[in-house]
Structures are given as C-alpha cells and as structure tokens.
Design a protein around this nucleic acid. Structure first.
Length: 107
DNA sequence: CCACTGACGAGTG
DNA sequence: GCACTCGCCAGTG
C-alpha cells in the first residue's frame, strides 16, 4: 500500500457521495476532491481499491461515459457494468452511459 | 532528482 | 468518430 500522503480519503468520500443509479466522471470527482486536473490521480486512487472496499468505485466512469479499461482483468469491467445496471443505470448499444441523464450533479 | 507508468481530460487534424 | 499530442497528479525504481 502506498503512502497516500494526500487526499485519497477526499476522493473516496466524494465517490461515496454518488447516489445509486447515478455516475460521475473522473474529472468531476477530482474537482470535488480538490484536484481540478487530477483525473489520473483519481483513477490511481480507485485502482488501489478492491472488492472489500465500501466505496462504490463502479459509479465512476470516464468523460465519455464509458467504463475505463484497466491494465488487465477485463472481467472486472463486466462486474462494474453489471453493478451499474443493477442500480438502474442503462448502457446504450455503444456500451456507454448517457451522461445527460445519469451524470451526478454533485449535490 | 530523473524517467516511466497509469481506471484521465481536453484539444487538434 | 478516430488517432495523436500535451498536460494533469501520484507512485515506484
């Protein structure tokens, strides 16, 4: 586990704030976490998570509304999609989410 | 300190 | 819509 001397907790907290059936982009979470241009850092922070995490990391997608491809194990991508669909999030034929409807406003 | 890598974003052609 | 480039921040060797 990395030193994480920085606001990982902020990122996790913001992600946890995302209501069910809603999604947020990396940039959005980053901004809310206090890192305006730290989209990459958000992704890294989420990558440090695992199944045992209480953080709904599956509600975080990229700016295109797609599930970001991770290093390996494409099976996890499927898991993320299943979890989202189970919460009511719909994927179009392109495999992405209509952010116009499901994007979290950050209330 | 430097170089490389990584769940990204925005801009350009 | 796709491919490429640059910029962002953090972690690791």
């Amino acid at each position: 586990m990395p030193a994480a001397t920085f606001s990982y907790a902020q990122i996790y907290r913001c992600v946890s704030r995302i209501p069910p059936g809603r999604v947020a982009t990396y940039g959005q979470v980053a901004k809310l976490a206090g890192i305006p241009n730290g989209a990459r850092s958000v992704g890294y922070a989420l990558s440090a998570l695992d199944d045992g995490s209480l953080v709904p990391w599956h509600r975080v997608v990229n700016a295109a509304g797609e599930i970001s491809p991770r290093s390996s194990s494409d099976a996890m991508e499927n898991t993320q999609r299943i979890r989202l669909e189970r919460e009511g999030v719909v994927f179009d034929a392109h495999g992405r989410i209509p952010l116009a409807m499901f994007r979290w406003n950050g209330e």
